[in-house]
Write a protein that binds this DNA or RNA. Structure first.
Lengths: 225, 225
DNA sequence: CAATTGCTTCGATGGAGGTCGAAGGATGAA
DNA sequence: TTCATCCTTCGACCTCCATCGAAGCAATTG
């Protein structure tokens, strides 16, 4: 009937609430077991099993058996990118959930977005780096400056191995809660890993990140407003 | 149950084949009437009317009455971007349609992708500009060089007004048919408009573009391999 | 070897929604 | 006004599929 790839199949996969919850939970970047995903999605293990099988058949997730556990993860960065762009579009179109849970405010403050830092804290980092000339946004694109490279190395991040990969080093990532940009890409992931290693942040339930006392001081010093 | 914008609602809207066809047809950038969309989607006018109402309620399209016609268009560039990224994901995940129509090969050669040039011809332009140092890709980002600015102005494109807009000037757009990048963004749109004005290309059925004799010579001269 | 845990398959149920025929506006043309 | 065209609403049908109970398989534990 029409030409091109069948976009509706992929969209229909994401279009079920239970599957969307599963995919959203996987955006933390961690591999989760089928039982955990069932809990996240609010369905029974049987139902989750069927959904996971569909997502895997559709190429959106990969599964790996380990003992009697089945670990599920997003199939690629591209899937995560598509999900984030859908979240952005949904937020702008006013498709907010009717029920906002108690974790909501904590999520707005600091959360994981495919292994990089998002939320108000992520926006603060982005703004601080941009104002001080470490990052150079050009439209939707984002480049790192020489000053930014020095800063990253001083922060404990080796840029060279990150740049050898095909994935972009810096990427503007649109924050659905703040409607502002935060730092994605390989550098964003490396920075979050560094912050976790330095005990600035601890992972809470789901995608929530909690700021430690040490982190509070560290952010104020390294990323002044 | 979960936090954040409701991604599944938007995805479910795109997830119906008829609606996906409608949205894909609108990616030409033109506003189409309800009857035309019904034809494109392969459903009756009643069904199309219902789908259009849902898409409008979901914020994906805008409608405008003009006489007894109802013109439908994508609501924003962001919707087009999400659709393209979904097309890319679908193509990589192997969700190709079972039936490939006769227009398929023409589409692979040259087509409209949200008002800029895509297909083999679009990739040729992109590669030619990149090799000759007019465009500077950095990861997923894309910048225009000084040489590129001179080239664009000589091609009859005033860059200043384009840069005042918030939308990016250059954007890498992933081609589902060639799996390579072509030039999107404001500059991509301006170049296609210029090519059409110069009678290099004519719009065929749907998103198909046909190369004229004049255009054949023009491409060979302006965008040598 | 049980017993327990984690996942999957099968079958039945129920609901959501896509589809079109028929009829009813709404707009413009003759 | 009358007609034709375009779109919409209503109602009925029907398919698809999400969901869960029950049972079965697989792997670890005692």
């Amino acid at each position: 009937m029409k030409e091109g790839p069948d976009i509706s199949r992929v969209a229909a996969l994401i279009g079920d609430p239970a599957r969307a919850n599963i995919l959203t939970a996987l955006m933390s970047g961690k591999a989760l077991t089928a039982a955990e995903l069932a809990e996240e999605a609010g369905v029974t293990p049987q139902t989750a099993s069927s959904h996971i099988a569909r997502l895997a058949a559709g190429g959106l997730v990969t599964t790996r058996r380990q003992g009697r556990h089945k670990y599920v993860a997003l199939a690629s960065d591209e899937v995560g990118t598509v999900l984030e762009s859908l979240i952005g579009l949904a937020a702008r179109s006013g498709h907010l959930r009717t029920r906002t849970g108690p974790r909501d405010s904590a999520l707005r403050h600091a959360r994981v977005c495919y292994n990089h830092l998002a939320g108000d804290l992520g926006v603060q980092v982005y703004d601080s780096l941009t104002v001080r000339g470490m990052l150079a946004p050009e439209g939707e694109a984002l480049a790192i400056t020489h000053a930014g490279r020095r800063f990253a190395e001083a922060f404990g991040i080796a840029l060279a191995p990150l740049e050898r990969r095909r994935a972009p080093l810096c990427r503007n990532c649109l924050d659905w809660s703040a409607r502002r940009y935060h730092l994605g890409g390989a550098l964003g992931r490396a920075m979050l890993a560094r912050m976790e290693a330095a005990d600035w942040l601890t992972r809470g339930e789901g995608r929530v990140l909690t700021l430690t006392r040490k982190g509070k001081a560290g952010f104020a010093e390294s990323f002044p407003g």
